[in-house]
């Protein structure tokens, strides 16, 4: 019997696809959260600048 005759590689492939899908999903989520973070930072920065301008 050759290696792979029992089709075990299909199970491995299916597990790999699920893992890859979760990985892609995590990466996308990470990118989106980074964008949100950046906008929060910008907002914070403008708010601080405005405060500074007012106090002068």
């Amino acid at each position: 019997m050759m290696i792979g005759d029992d089709k075990f590689f299909v199970v491995a492939l299916v597990l790999a696809i699920i893992f890859a899908g979760l990985a892609v999903y995590l990466i996308m989520l990470d990118i989106k959260l980074s964008k949100i973070e950046k906008r929060v930072m910008q907002k914070n920065a403008t708010a601080t600048l405005n405060q500074l301008a007012e106090t002068k």
Partner: peptide, 15 residues
Amino acid sequence: VIYQTIRNLFFHVPL
């Protein structure tokens, strides 16, 4: 025909 791929029941069907 399905041999070991029957194990995919645990990984494919729950999705």
